[in-house]
Amino acid sequence: MVKFSMLSNMGSRDNNEDNIGMYQDGEDYCFILADGLGGHGKGEVASQLAVNAVIEQFTQGERGEDFLDQAFENAQNSIVARQEEERACMDMKTTLVVLMVENAQIRWGHIGDSRLYYFQNGKLRVRTLDHSVPQMLVAVGEIKEKDIRHHPDRNRLLRVLGVEMDEMKHQTSEPIGRENRQAFLLCTDGFWELIEEKKMEATLKKASTPEEWLQEMEKIVQKNGKNTNMDNYSAIAVWADNH
């Protein structure tokens, strides 16, 4: 049984460059989240293209072992093609997170600093690592995880779609099995920067639906972001039980 809830909000900005999407095909679900970056409004185009490319891959392509790799590559190609049409090379980039919930397994992939969190039985188990400067600093032991949110370089990304690359730079997870009480949270940095993991767990515990969980988390995000120039924020909550 799979339940989900999605939100995307422009925060204090003039437009929303985040894009989210989902598709259900029988027992198989695909959830997608992208945070566009680049000047002159092209970020929105990039994130939209990425989401659409993954949907296209999901609905028309094979869903084999390398589905995620193909989806990311499809998204990259789609953005590059549009850049060439418009000569907008600098400005059309995006992060991307894709979650696949299938009959027998769940898997995901990401690039950039949009995140996927995996909770099992209410406890945080896995979080994707950001392709960003502060995350690298954590990896070499210079700063702590908890410093990422306030780090001055937190918006400096090392890997995104839409830049020239000889080979794909996204990361994919090992598939995990279906179990009871699995919860996933996909979110852009506008969201996770304003809520701590402890609060995600606490609200998860109390919520009886993914909608409720997202709503409670959004309240915290709104509260923490009050009177600041809030970035676009988006989140997708997915709850899965083992049938």
Partner: peptide
């Protein structure tokens, strides 16, 4: 939603940068 058919936006506000 045709994949190629996207609305544009005027906003230039871009905080996140690619290194």
């Amino acid at each position: 939603m045709a994949v190629r058919d996207m609305p544009f936006s005027d906003s230039d506000d871009d905080k996140t940068v690619f290194l």
